[in-house]
Design a protein around this nucleic acid. Structure first.
Lengths: 216, 216
DNA sequence: TAGATTGTTAATCGATTAACAATC
DNA sequence: TAGATTGTTAATCGATTAACAATC
């Protein structure tokens, strides 16, 4: 058979690689703001505590080539990574849970700067519903599925107490959410079509606590 | 040679295993509150989307044995995991950065409930220094190293803008902090003796964005 | 007892690293 | 040109899974 397709097959990038690509992208943006032109795999590796082999291996998953003796063109690589990571698009989000954490997320300035826009904040507590958070008003969680569906919201952030996490996930899925970021401790279950990422802060603290204990 | 030592050598638990142990521990606490007596490796595996082999393999790292036909005693396993993860101790923390995120962290009720107590909040912005957050007052970041050293603070939470993350890490290290939780995007460098955990929220969103794009 | 579940060894799988020809 | 750096193949390493004897 003749293979007329672009060299790089768009096959499934392993999740661990994607995670590292997000970190490369963060560095690339920094370099870009410093007007750097070129970056080598060993530069990136050193900043992130990896080997240059890993970096090159990872970058071989995306459709961008470096140049011998020079490395990778900063602008070009940044653009390709942006595309791979969806950073060239804007994404709409809702925050569920208007407690301290939900409140902070709704006001977090870095999100819109990176293309992630919060379109609504929800809670089940009557005392919180109707309150202002920045330019938004807290809505009743009962209206969540309809809101997601009508506004075509992409991503839901779960910032409720752990016990309610699965229920909220179900509401998000009912509204046809496309992805979920779970900020609680609890493991949530979704259909395979709805990817979930989790940032377990308490878990991370416990992991640290273990590492500290081990030190001494 | 005779081996009179306990069967389980206290050797270095791989970091990936520790991360999963924190998740097992969360489940165990839930089970305990429901007065469950026994749990099997396959129960845990199913709730977390793992195999029972992985669970048993992980639990073989800690000094607690299950019982054939019954599984693991919930109380006993919870206690052993608590010890391994330092959840049987209380830990003192500082939050650096009194923006929205730092503010939310300082007020987050789950931390003290899990034994992580916030003893101080710091910022460099004169407009923020002196403000009240709950029962604390925002202090000048210049006084951070001395505070850590004198109060023997265990863990520092970095919740400042990315550009300042490394500087803050250096101040924490100068004060002899024992571990750092980095909530910014940026990779920070510390001496080997100071473990760092990171919860990259924007990275997680970009990871989701990639997975969503792949779906369609 | 029979059968379910552990703990552990061995096999498999995947991810990281090393190595090096190609190349600019 | 000589030498640095890529892209990729092969080797290594570690983590996950399978399998099963031990056992309650």
């Amino acid at each position: 058979m003749f293979n007329l397709m672009s060299k790089k097959a768009k096959t499934h990038i392993p999740r661990g690689v994607v995670v590292r690509l997000t970190r490369y992208y963060a560095i690339l943006q920094e370099l870009r703001s410093r007007r750097a032109q070129w970056v080598s795999s060993s530069d990136i590796a050193e900043w992130l505590g990896l080997t240059s082999s890993t970096v090159r291996q990872d970058l071989s998953h995306i459709d961008f080539r470096g140049i011998s003796r020079k490395g990778y063109n900063v602008e070009g690589l940044a653009a390709t990574l942006a595309k791979t990571l969806g950073a060239d698009t804007t994404w709409s989000m809702v925050v569920v849970g208007a407690g301290n954490l939900g409140h902070a997320l709704a006001l977090h300035e870095e999100f819109p700067r990176k293309g992630f826009h919060i379109k609504g904040v929800f809670d089940s507590d009557p005392a919180k519903i109707g309150r202002r958070i920045g330019s938004l008003r807290v809505m009743d969680v009962l209206t969540l599925p309809r809101f997601i569906y009508e506004k075509k919201i992409d991503i839901g952030l779960i910032a409720v107490p752990s016990q309610a996490a699965q229920q909220v996930a179900d509401l998000l899925v009912a509204g046809r959410i496309r992805g979920i970021l779970n900020l609680t401790q609890t493991h949530i279950v979704t259909p395979k079509t709805v990817p979930v990422a989790a940032t377990r802060i308490v878990s991370s603290l416990q992991e640290l606590a273990h590492l500290i204990k081990r030190q001494s």
